[in-house]
Design a protein around this nucleic acid. Structure first.
Lengths: 242, 242
DNA sequence: CGGCTAGTTGAAGACTGTCAAAGCCTGTGG
DNA sequence: CCACAGGCTTTGACAGTCTTCAACTAGCCG
């Protein structure tokens, strides 16, 4: 296995690796720091388990401590959309802060651990907390807009590349390798997030591999040509979709 | 002209219409109520004028008081994505609350007026304010996710219908007709928001008109068959795109 | 071993994009 | 007042990317 975000929690009791000067990372550290004085409730979660479902009464916010999660919305008529993949340091339930029931599903993609944050309590007692939440919310909006831009203006293959690069970057911020990725989601889930069909994702990965830019072995993906990959997304190459 | 959100501000000095029990509307009212004791700076804006640009130092938050705006992101290589159309009661600059420069552009699509909110000051002096902002941010995330779902899972024509219905609903919440829409954006802008080309938008509108569901006259659009339109989006009809 | 899920690959088809031309509307200027 | 330029919209024909449908393989587990 190339790397592992979730298993062996107990062998690695404190995963406080170096945190690069990333915006997200610094926010996260502060959050975890803030929480050290608070008796947060930890919860172990297994793959395919729901952290919460849309419609359930909202009690808390959840901080991902380990593992890999997806959040997704389902329309009345059954259309589903994954709104994001969440890992250590991410918060689950942000979208429902002002509601009394959750508005999306949060589902574990592998074994993990989440910390339950009593939102109202923390707001009242920790002056910094609300401000921090505001920052995180704004960051989530920027991230969403970034994906709207990516999905709306790039070709299938470019979207896949953008996803791989983003995932690598996020993993790197957590102290893992940015080039050796272990996908925790199926091709269908990845496609759903990128607004592609699973076959298209497969084809994109195969094609990238045939070009020598990545190496694919099921869900293990190695990024061989980072600069090449970046130029596919940020460079002027690619079909002018908009 | 079917209706008008922007012009004749002065003939209509106080547009405090009835506010339905919409989540957004109630938030908005509170905001405007809160602000009555504060000397906000009003600014008149004309079509195509920027409220702010990405990269400019962030000073304030802007509340749209009248007019129609778009917010959009532009990638380094020039790809552009409209992240939303904003009207009375919406806030501009939310995405950059924790940054010291704006991260998107905000551009007026017609004449309007915005109120400049000194964010830091209001946070410090109005206990409710920060909480309200949190709610609005969470609402924005839900809205974004909703559009990600719409754009990611519906066909071109369905997306256009979803947009028209949403716009009608928003206008209704402001006291206007939900069936007589005056589009303030070009076909290209509408297409950009929906991740479609302008020709596709035109074709969708033409086709809907040929089916007798709407009536198109340039940017004036009348929704003739609301239930039919709704069934196109929420019903099980439409190609199974995902 | 059989069944199941996940992934890969191929061929055909569909929706949407691309390119092009023409109509429409507005505002400007003669 | 009309002409004209420029931007926006509409429509058509064609092309292309992505989806759809299908078959096949691989890995996992009872």
């Amino acid at each position: 296995m190339l790397h592992d975000t979730a298993i062996d929690l107990d062998q690695r009791p404190d995963m406080n690796f170096h945190f690069p000067q990333q915006e997200r990372a610094s926010e996260t550290r502060s959050l975890e720091t803030l929480l050290q004085e608070w008796p947060v409730q930890r919860r172990r979660i297994h793959a395919k388990q729901y952290v919460f479902r849309a419609g359930q009464p909202r009690q808390s916010l959840f901080l991902v401590h380990a593992g890999f999660f997806k959040t997704c919305m389902i329309s009345e008529d059954g259309r589903e959309k994954i709104t994001g993949f969440r890992m250590r340091g991410d918060l689950l339930g942000l979208d429902a802060l002002d509601m009394d029931s959750y508005t999306c599903d949060a589902i574990a993609l592998d074994t993990g651990e989440i910390w339950e944050l009593p939102y109202a309590q923390l707001c009242n007692n920790l002056p910094e907390f609300q401000q921090r939440i505001t920052s995180i919310l704004a960051g989530e909006i920027r991230r969403d807009w970034g994906w709207m831009l990516t999905v709306g203006t790039l070709s299938a293959e470019q979207r896949v590349v953008a996803f791989l690069l983003d995932l690598g970057q996020r993993l790197e911020a957590l102290g893992f390798s940015a080039r050796r990725l272990m996908l925790r989601m199926t091709r269908a889930e990845l496609g759903n997030f990128l607004s592609l069909k699973l076959e298209t994702v497969t084809r994109a990965l195969s094609h990238l591999q045939s070009q020598g830019m990545i190496e694919v072995a099921g869900r293990e993906i190695r990024l061989d040509d980072l600069t090449g990959l970046r130029s596919m997304v940020y460079g002027s190459a690619g079909r002018s979709c908009h």
